[in-house]
């Protein structure tokens, strides 16, 4: 078996569209959560749901430019974030405070994102149907 949608192709046929939010709070490479989290997001694209990705806390490091992983012998999966648009996953949100605490700004990130205040982030979260955090 390879990575599949679990026998469910092109949505589940129910016609239900829910708001899915994937909350990324962990840095890449130190643990596998960022990579396997991204795999869930990519699969979700096949279900025609209203998907958004949020980057909070160390999750913002997933989007850092200039990742070179050859010397740690781990696949650099950061280019995948650039490919999200091709999967119609275009709602990427980053919390301003998470960037500021780390001395980063939106220009340091691989992809265009919408930078939100903590309050706006909280408001957005409340409107979701399904929130999955990694």
């Amino acid at each position: 078996m390879n990575e599949t949608t679990g026998g469910i192709e092109d949505g589940d046929g129910s016609g239900i569209v829910k708001k899915f939010m994937f909350v990324n709070r962990k840095a890449p490479y130190g643990t596998i959560y960022a990579l396997e989290g991204l795999e869930v997001v990519l699969i979700s694209a096949a279900f025609d749901q209203d998907v958004s990705m949020v980057f909070l806390d160390d999750g913002v490091y997933q989007l850092a430019k200039g990742q070179h992983t050859k010397a740690i012998d781990v696949k650099n999966f950061s280019p995948t974030y650039r490919a999200l648009e091709g999967y119609d996953i275009e709602k990427l949100y980053v919390e301003r405070e998470s960037l500021e605490i780390r001395g980063l700004n939106a220009g340091d990130l691989l992809v265009p994102v919408e930078v939100l205040s903590s309050a706006a982030m909280g408001d957005l979260m409340k409107t979701q149907d399904v929130v999955i955090g990694f």
């Binding site: 982030m121 909280g122 979260m125």
Partner: peptide, 17 residues
């Protein structure tokens, strides 16, 4: 761990719950 602080920062400012 700063998880609680992050949760409160986002959840409280977002209001309620």
């Amino acid at each position: 761990n700063t998880t609680l602080a992050s949760c409160l920062r986002v959840a409280c400012k977002g209001g309620g719950g």
